[in-house]
Design a binder for these strands. Structure first.
Lengths: 142, 142
DNA sequence: TTGATTGCAAAGCCTTTGCAGTTCT
DNA sequence: AGAACTGCAAAGGCTTTGCAATCAA
């Protein structure tokens, strides 16, 4: 873990950024929470340090995303959900009926990725992919 | 066209709703614009009638969506885009590099739909599907 | 030292809501 | 007449921004 830290911390500095307690706390929070909105990240961060501001969370998440240490996806109408970059790649299915979120492996969306690549030369961002629809527990739409 | 009109107008009334000039104008605007945000719909509507309010546009789009006369998709960070329900089904590809939007036929996403159906019993809403990534005109991310 | 970063407060989008007046049926 | 609908204004949720103070290197 210290090896990991060293790595991204070096990367940060290499780009002229600075390592701050807030940045470490935000990254830790995303890694601990797994799926979290900016507001949830803030809450988690504040359990360890006080005075951290929501605007810092937004700025930090953006920066961490640039470093590919976190990613985000839109799972509904509200705030986006942030995931650790270290988590295995996955796409999301969201059920309109019950709001259930299902994580799917890249292999499941590989057929789509292939078609888009070959037919449109389009490179899909799988980690950002969210498919809306209806799950088996919910009645078909009428 | 009057036949079409008659049909949805009957449907409206059958559900206890009323036919108002605003509702006709909003539907016409979506059909004329093809892809439009609520704000764009308002602008178009105001070319024909004055005094129409943005809140009416929102309320009307929601109602028309319930009647499946329009659908919406999220093509970026801002407001959603509304499409006529009469348009052929399609999904969207959005390029992060140049913001280009590519419409794809249902047949292109059929492989995905099949996998999700068979493996997760998940029924995909193709018209709402937006895939983010990078198009052939743009450089691969570094 | 000094430029990056933060907290705070204000503003900005986009969308929803309460309500009184209006309109469709 | 009476319920549905609209315009208006205000509020609400989420996010960004300007700026002075603070902090990492």
């Amino acid at each position: 873990m210290s090896a990991e830290n060293t790595e991204w911390q070096h990367e940060l500095r290499a780009r002229g950024y600075r390592l701050t307690p807030q940045r470490q706390l935000v990254l830790e929070a995303v890694e601990e929470l797994g799926h979290a909105t900016p507001e949830e990240v803030l809450t988690e961060v504040r359990r360890k340090a006080q005075g951290v501001n929501i605007s810092t969370v937004y700025r930090t998440l953006e920066l961490l995303e640039g470093l590919q240490l976190v990613t985000h996806a839109h799972l509904g109408h509200g705030a986006p959900t942030y995931h650790p970059g270290s988590a295995p790649d996955h796409a999301h299915l969201v059920c309109r009926g019950c709001d259930r979120v299902i994580e799917v492996e890249p292999v499941d969306v590989a057929p789509l990725v292939s078609v888009l690549e070959s037919k449109y030369a389009f490179r899909t961002d799988v980690r950002h992919l969210t498919v809306f629809g209806e799950c088996d527990r919910c009645e078909p739409a009428t």
